[in-house]
Design a protein around this nucleic acid. Structure first.
Length: 300
DNA sequence: TCTCCTCGAGATCT
DNA sequence: CTCGAGGAGA
């Protein structure tokens, strides 16, 4: 097998991770401020990453970056970042090193995120001779799919019409807006029952192979000790959904039987599992039917 | 009528 | 880059 070796000199096209389109609860939101649009000619002024776990922001990395040349006036006006502010900031090398350690292997979420990725990969290649291959997800692309009624999808406009925290052309504020926007996008997608998320629905393992990744369980959780089955297409990745159930003490099963307690019903409601569940319910069995929206609400 | 294409216009990030 | 219009072909 041929092993890909990253060579920043000979690289013809930038190397990126995979673009994703899923409902995730664990990821990093990233935003940068720069002196312009070109990763080759312009430089980084500020970078922020919000670490999200279980859908909550649990940690923040944010830093200004020392610059060699004066910041263009129009950028100072746009961002409010002045030469004085970056004078005492750490070097790009130090900030980038800490940023990379902070985000680790997380999925990167951002608004028009390839813009940020181009600057990050460019500088990571120059300084460390290393690629930046994290998978990523773009709220701009998602917004265009979910909010089709809008013709403008700028972060500032979306924040205004959706009632999100106001972005400020500063990295941390814009990250906060982007996190709120992402939540708003997948909530809306579920509400409207539109399938813009198309993860690989193929089952990548038997339910018995999915083990809890936590050691303590909430015994009062609705899934605890319950035999759960999933049917139909879900917006969330199938394996992730099963993992979420297992981590809350649920017991997975392949098919609907007399032992089944909960059936999560995705987009297609006419599946054989669903029909079987209705038969059993008609016979007096108590099976809880959950839409994906119900399911996510219980997980949250 | 329906599907698949190509082409051009406009959008988003600082 | 995405998306819509409009053409080609079934």
């Amino acid at each position: 097998m041929e092993i890909a070796i990253y060579n920043p000199i000979e690289r013809e096209q930038p190397c990126y991770g995979n673009p994703l389109c899923e409902i995730l609860f664990d990821y990093c939101v990233v935003d940068i401020e720069t002196t312009g649009f070109s990763p080759e000619d312009d430089i980084l002024l500020e970078i922020t990453a919000l670490r999200v776990r279980n859908n909550q922001i649990c940690d923040t990395f944010s830093s200004l970056i020392k610059t060699a040349a004066p910041i263009p006036k129009h950028i100072q006006k746009l961002t409010g970042i002045t030469d004085d502010m970056v004078a005492l900031a750490p070097s790009l090398e130090e900030v980038l090193k800490n940023f990379l350690a902070f985000v680790g292997d997380d999925v990167i979420i951002g608004h028009n995120v390839t813009f940020d990725l181009r600057f990050i990969t460019e500088n990571t290649a120059k300084l460390f001779n290393e690629p930046f291959l994290n998978d990523y997800m773009d709220t701009l692309t998602l917004s265009r799919k979910v909010f089709r009624e809008y013709s403008c999808h700028k972060l500032g406009y979306l924040a205004e019409v959706l009632g999100l925290p106001v972005p400020a052309h500063r990295a941390e504020a814009d990250c906060q807006t982007t996190k709120a926007l992402y939540d708003c996008i997948w909530h809306t997608a579920l509400d409207r029952n539109i399938s813009v998320f198309y993860p690989d629905q193929r089952f990548a393992g038997k339910p018995a192979d999915i083990l809890p990744t936590v050691t303590e369980f909430d015994e009062n959780h609705p899934f605890y000790g319950k035999v759960c089955v999933i049917t139909g297409k879900l917006s969330i990745n199938r394996v992730s959904a099963l993992q979420l159930i297992v981590n809350r003490g649920g017991i997975l099963a392949n098919s609907v039987t007399r032992k089944t307690n909960i059936l999560v019903v995705g987009c297609d409601s006419a599946t054989s599992k669903y029909k079987k569940a209705q038969e059993l319910i008609a016979l007096g069995q108590s099976i809880e039917l959950l839409t994906e929206k119900d399911f996510i609400a219980l997980i949250e």
